[in-house]
Design a binder for these strands. Structure first.
Length: 221
DNA sequence: CTCCCGCCGA
DNA sequence: TCGGCTGGAG
């Protein structure tokens, strides 16, 4: 293919400009947001985060200690609230017990070791782990989400059956392995995906419209 | 595959 | 009124 994934990045950046991700101004807030936003619109996550701040719970120790049912009610606007209360406390327990609640110390550990630790926690899969590592830890790992898969597959840049790791592998192999690029690229993919690469695509007004393959791609979404 | 589950726009 | 939302587990 003549178009490279770096060309795609340039095109998205030119069209949308910098996205200033992750929304959230502390490592802890980014980690909490990463859990709460699982299959949930960011709009609802913001309400839950605001609730946590108003309750004065934005601290790994407090989040871990708060009774689970109470925590669940506080984060209720984010949906799946009982499930997410558990997941949030699983993550906070790890932070407290393994890293003494010190996030700066935690992210000074190696990327591969942290990724393995996070994936071992119940409630953290590859996307959430990578989001935490990249956006909270500023460590170089590419976040692959539903939109990333759709955009790449619909344009024929990767096979339809490609899984998370295969998609991540392609991006990493074709791009400079730099945190600012990974950060911005994922944010731009979410932006274009949310606006255009829906289940029912809106290609006519998409900034990547000209990069569609001639005959279209057979897909099964 | 189903379940987890609130919220909002079409 | 309902589909979809910056997923993950069983």
């Amino acid at each position: 293919m003549s178009i490279t994934l770096l060309d795609v990045y340039d095109r998205l950046l030119a069209h949308y400009g910098p996205q200033a991700w992750w929304p959230g101004d502390s490592r802890l807030e980014i980690m909490v947001g990463a859990i709460l936003t699982q299959n949930t619109s960011w709009r609802n996550v913001e309400k839950a985060i605001l609730n946590l701040k108003e309750e004065g719970l934005f601290d790994p120790f407090k989040l871990q200690e708060t009774p689970q049912e109470g925590l669940a009610e506080i984060i209720r606007p984010a949906g799946y609230y009982r499930l997410k209360a558990k997941r949030l406390q699983n993550l906070m327990r790890y932070v407290v017990e393994t890293h003494h609640g010190d996030l700066d110390a935690m992210f000074a550990c190696s990327l591969s070791a942290l990724r393995e630790d996070l994936l071992a926690l119940n409630g953290i899969g590859p996307e959430t782990a990578d989001a935490i590592l990249l956006y909270a830890g500023e460590l170089p790992t590419f976040v692959v989400d539903t939109y990333t898969a759709r955009v790449l597959k619909r344009h024929g840049w990767i096979e339809q059956e490609a899984d998370y790791h295969q998609i991540q592998d392609l991006l990493v192999s074709e791009l400079p392995q730099e945190v600012p690029l990974y950060n911005e690229y994922h944010a731009l993919l979410v932006r274009v995906g949310n606006a255009h690469c829906r289940k029912t695509p809106k290609c006519d007004t998409c900034p990547l419209c000209e990069l569609l393959p001639p005959g279209g791609i057979e897909e099964g979404f």
